Amino acid sequence: MRNLFFRHPFLFRWVMNLWPPFLFTGVKIVTISPDFRYARVDLKWRPWTRNINNTQFGGSLYAMTDPLYALMLFGCLGWDRYLIWDKKADIEYIAPGKGRLTAEFHIEDDQLHSIKAATASGEKCFPVFTVNVRDREGNLVCHVERTLYVRLRHRYRPAS
């Protein structure tokens, strides 16, 4: 099943949009590129995603960025070859978010090359990815840095 999940981006998007932590928080993957290097995610404006100040709940902003970079890296590098986890995240709230919010995720060639080079000997790598969440007018709502844990699975590590 995982092989299909990461081989077909449309299936990945469909399954993730039905995943309860996304479905019930109003998070939706709008698009994902065939090579898993770009994704756009929206956070819907719903009564249950608002806080007491009538702005988007900070936990929903955080949730919309949670698994994307790790899952996109699985699509780029191979889920069967690498162990990839979220290790750390830091969110800086810039302005109140009202209405539908959008985050765009990018993975560049040089990031993939440096991850492969750093893990080739079996070592751990902790790449940092940045995503900005914006409102419909393009105003910055929050800035999120996600640190991932990436390592070759044991059977692909060079013999010590």
Rank of each mutant, 00 (worst) to 15 (best):
R7N: 13
F5I: 04
L71G: 02
L18R: 07
A70N: 05
F22T: 01
F12R: 10
K44P: 07
T55I: 11
R46Y: 07
Y62I: 14
R50V: 12
P47E: 11
D66I: 02
F74P: 10
L23K: 03
S33H: 04
G59V: 00
Q56L: 15
R40N: 05
W19M: 04
P20N: 02
F24A: 09
G59E: 02
R37C: 06
L61D: 04
L43G: 10
R7C: 09
F74G: 03
A39F: 04
L11I: 09
P67C: 11
V30E: 09
W19H: 09
L11A: 02
V30Y: 14
T31H: 13
N17V: 03
N54H: 09
I29T: 07
D42P: 12
W45P: 08
K44Q: 14
P20M: 01
S33T: 03
H8A: 15
V27G: 01
R7M: 12
D35F: 05
D35A: 07
M16D: 00
N17F: 08
T25Q: 14
I52S: 15
L73C: 03
N54I: 09
L18P: 02
I29Q: 08
Y62S: 14
D66K: 01
D35R: 06
G59P: 03
R7Y: 13
A70R: 02
F5A: 05
L61V: 13
R13Y: 04
G58D: 00
N54K: 04
K28R: 13
F74E: 13
L73I: 07
D42Q: 13
M64V: 00
F24R: 11
L43M: 07
F10Q: 15
I32K: 03
P20T: 01
S60Q: 10
S60D: 08
W14F: 15
P21G: 04
D66F: 05
F6E: 13
T55M: 15
F24I: 06
A63M: 13
T25G: 08
I29V: 12
P47V: 14
D66W: 10
I29D: 06
L11W: 04
F10V: 11
L18K: 01
F12G: 08
T65G: 15
F74V: 04
M72C: 10
R50C: 15
G58I: 06
N51D: 12
F57Q: 12
F6Y: 05
P47Y: 14
R37K: 12
I52V: 14
L18N: 01
M72T: 08
V27Y: 01
P20V: 04
